[in-house]
Each structure stands twice: as structure tokens, then as C-alpha cells.
């Protein structure tokens, strides 16, 4: 559905307030610093990305799955559902909503097993992926409830393509799109998809791409946009901060420690 963003549940319910978001995370931020929290989400966004690529999903589906994941934990602590279960559940649900088709249960579980074993052993060591189809299906109901059935997510990719088309009337440069597209992908590792409308994220990604490519001559194009430049600057800063963080961060070394620190679900009390 390429309907009207302004009337969508995305706009009306899921553009969150920064302060509210921060407040709802207090439980988790008692155990993790803000940076550690971000690194944990960075890691699970990678899991979703790799799972999606293995399952040959389009980037749009992967992005939607990632947003589901972030929306769930925007309202709930990491301890409520093990993120290692929620991540594939988000992929499973998003692929149905985006009309990719249903991924067969067995294929999903097998893919999870291989991906965890082959690509994320630095985080999970010798542990196998512990969940089965029935876990995913149960989790899916909880996910849908917590999303309040808001399943259509608007992504920055479409507005990005439109902006680039418009830019092309002035400057012919295919690199701009390539860069900006990747920056949008990277933005999924931050909170911007919870805080800003997708078209603003698209403009911010374009902005960063133009700076990287030294496209001074596009300044007038940005100046003519009728958009809140303060918001664009906030998004740009968030994404640049991510890049700064990556420079000095070695996930392979740190992630096991971080995963050990996140609040875990508690089982039913023993009788």
C-alpha cells in the first residue's frame, strides 16, 4: 500500500517522542548504558539483515522487519521476549505483510540455525539457535498485539527514489543514490525510524551522501526543500554518531559481554 502517509497508523501512532522513548527504556538502561543499548540493537538489526538476505527478501521487507523489532522494544523491555526469538518472528511477519509470500516454517528455522552458527558464532559460540516453529508462532501473536496491528510501515526508499529523480534533472550522478540508499540501510541501526517520518530520513541520507561525495552544487536544491531543516540536522547527527561509534567498536570482541548484560526473561515461578 502506497497510501497516504499522513493518515497512516505509522504517522498517527508510531512517530514517537524522544523523551517518551527514553523514559520507556529506563528499565533496560539500568542494566546497559545508552551506547551499549544501541550496540545491542545494532547487533540484532544485523541478524535481521543477514536472515533476510539468506531468505532472499527485498530490502523493503528487511527494513519493515527491523522496524517491527524496534517498535516492540520501544514499548517493552528486552526481558519481555528474548530478542533472538523476536528477530526471526519479525522477519516472518514482515514477509507476509509485504506480500513476499509465506516463508515455510522449516525453512525459517533452518535458516536461523545456519545463520547463527555460521555468521554469528562470535556472539553465540557453540550454542545452537534454540527455538522451533511453535515458539515463532506464539511469539508472532504477541508481536502483532504489541504493534497494535499496525503492520504497514513506510520506508525512506520510495521517497529517496523520488528525490533522486528530481535531483537528476540538475545533476547526473548515480553515486548519490547508491550512497544514500546504503545510508538509509544504516539508519535502521539507529532510532530514527521510530522518531522521524521516512521522507525526512530520505532527505537526511541524501544530505550525508552529498557531503561525502562533495556535491557542493546541490546546496540550492536542499535550500529549496520545504522541510524542517532542524529535524534533518538531528537525523544527520544521529547517523553520523553511528558512524563515529563504529570507528572504535569491535562487535566481535564486545558483543558476548553485552548480550550477557541484557535483562533476560524470567521463567514461571517453580512450585
Amino acid at each position: 500500500m502506497a497510501g497516504n502517509f499522513w493518515q497512516s497508523s505509522h504517522h498517527q501512532q508510531w512517530i514517537l517522542d524522544k523523551q517518551d522513548l527514553f523514559r520507556d527504556r529506563q528499565h533496560d538502561l539500568a542494566k546497559l548504558t545508552e551506547e551499549e543499548y544501541q550496540k545491542v540493537f545494532n547487533f540484532f538489526a544485523s541478524i535481521i539483515q543477514v536472515l533476510g538476505e539468506q531468505l532472499k527478501l527485498r530490502q523493503q521487507v528487511i527494513a519493515t522487519a527491523t522496524v517491527y523489532f524496534k517498535r516492540f522494544y520501544a514499548r517493552n523491555s528486552l526481558k519481555c521476549i528474548d530478542p533472538l526469538l523476536l528477530a526471526p518472528t519479525c522477519v516472518f511477519l514482515a514477509s507476509k505483510v509485504e506480500e513476499f509470500g509465506v516463508i515455510s516454517n522449516s525453512r525459517l528455522i533452518t535458516t536461523c540455525q545456519t545463520v547463527i552458527k555460521n555468521k554469528f558464532s562470535y556472539a553465540y559460540g557453540q550454542q545452537e539457535f534454540p527455538y522451533r516453529t511453535n515458539h515463532i508462532l506464539e511469539c508472532e501473536f504477541y508481536l502483532l498485539e504489541n504493534l497494535d496491528c499496525c503492520l504497514i510501515v513506510y520506508q525512506p526508499y520510495r521517497p529517496l527514489l523520488l528525490f533522486v529523480q528530481d535531483i537528476h534533472t540538475q545533476v547526473q550522478d548515480d553515486q548519490i543514490l547508491t550512497y544514500a540508499w546504503r545510508i538509509v540501510n544504516d539508519s535502521l541501526r539507529t532510532d530514527v525510524s521510530l522518531l522521524y517520518p521516512p521522507y525526512q530520513i530520505a532527505i537526511s541520507a541524501l544530505h550525508i551522501a552529498c557531503v561525502m561525495l562533495g556535491k557542493e552544487n546541490l546546496k540550492p536544491w536542499f535550500a529549496e526543500l520545504n522541510v524542517d531543516m532542524d529535524k534533518i540536522q538531528e537525523i544527520v547527527r544521529t547517523i553520523i554518531n553511528l558512524y563515529e561509534m563504529w570507528k572504535s567498536y569491535d562487535e566481535k570482541k564486545e558483543i558476548q559481554g553485552l548480550l550477557g548484560k541484557i535483562p533476560k526473561p524470567c521463567p514461571a515461578p517453580q512450585r
Binding site: S77, K79, D82, Q127, H135, P265
Partner: peptide, 12 residues
């Protein structure tokens, strides 16, 4: 037992 993982928090 094998994984020491609980998928969902009981209280939640």
C-alpha cells in the same frame, strides 16, 4: 536445560 534460554518473561 540445554540452552538455558527462556523465550518469554513470565510476568510479561
Amino acid at each position: 536445560k540445554t540452552m538455558a534460554s527462556v523465550m518469554m518473561d513470565y510476568e510479561f
